[in-house]
């Protein structure tokens, strides 16, 4: 069963059409990646799924419910969690407090502690900085914190926007390994990434967006061999 179903959505910013008619569905436990140039509509698609933007036409169905009937703040407890681009962390709170905020809607203290340990194992850097004010972290460290906070909210569907942005190459490897780990625990992942090569390597399925439409789609293993894509996105 598809746990996330996007059906012909059209999104506008004012009068500018950002998405015209995007449809796809994501099965439970899959990693699906959206790739494409800047301004192709990747982030807009994520924002429509996480309820930040309302599509003018079309529907988004999460766990077989219409998104239009769910309030944005109800999405996280339902398990839909977005890691926004640009590291929107709580910059005046400490690293530890940021992580706790991720688990804001959860009650089970034991499970929360377990997840916290998992995050700190994934990003040892964060353990060193637990008491530091998050705003004083370096850019890459903030990126790790944003991911960590998302994992703390025990997601069922994780929407990742450019997780590799601003990370050192060695960390990019680590982050993508942990994304695969997260998937193994049954989390479904929708991944937006400029580093298309890495994204396609870990994804099951990929969609190439071009000016608000799906230009190409297919199993990631096939896309990675596609000559056009190699030329345009893999460098």
């Amino acid at each position: 069963m598809a746990i996330l179903e996007i059906n012909d959505i059209h999104v506008y910013y004012g009068n500018i059409r950002a998405l015209h008619g995007i449809s796809f569905s994501v099965e439970k436990g899959q990693i699906v990646t959206l790739i494409g140039a800047n301004g192709a509509g990747k982030t807009t698609t994520l924002n429509a799924i996480s309820g930040i933007l309302a599509p003018r036409q079309g529907s988004v169905r999460v766990f077989d419910q219409d998104l239009a009937r769910i309030m944005p703040h109800e999405l996280v407890p339902q398990g839909v969690v977005q890691v926004p681009e640009g590291r929107r962390i709580f910059s005046r709170l400490t690293v530890d407090e940021n992580l706790s905020m991720g688990a804001f809607t959860r009650k089970d203290k034991v499970a929360i502690a377990k997840d916290r340990e998992r995050v700190l194992e994934m990003f040892p850097r964060l353990r060193e900085r637990l008491t530091q004010i998050a705003g004083t972290l370096s850019g890459g460290e903030q990126q790790m914190l944003a991911m960590g906070r998302a994992i703390m909210s025990d997601p069922k569907i994780l929407l990742l926007d450019e997780p590799s942005m601003g990370l050192a190459p060695i960390l990019v490897d680590q982050v993508f390994e942990s994304i695969q780990d997260i998937r193994k625990q049954g989390v479904t992942i929708l991944l937006v990434e400029q580093n298309a090569y890495v994204a396609l390597q870990i994804a099951d399925y990929g969609y190439v967006l071009e000016s608000g439409q799906i230009a190409l789609k297919g199993p990631a293993k096939e896309l990675i061999k596609n000559e056009e894509i190699r030329k345009a996105y893999l460098g």
Binding site: G51, I52, L53, A54, A68, R69, M71, P72
Partner: peptide, 10 residues
């Protein structure tokens, strides 16, 4: 200056 785009709830 910032305006938020609110989601309409049915």
């Amino acid at each position: 200056a910032s305006t938020f785009q609110h989601k309409a709830i049915t």
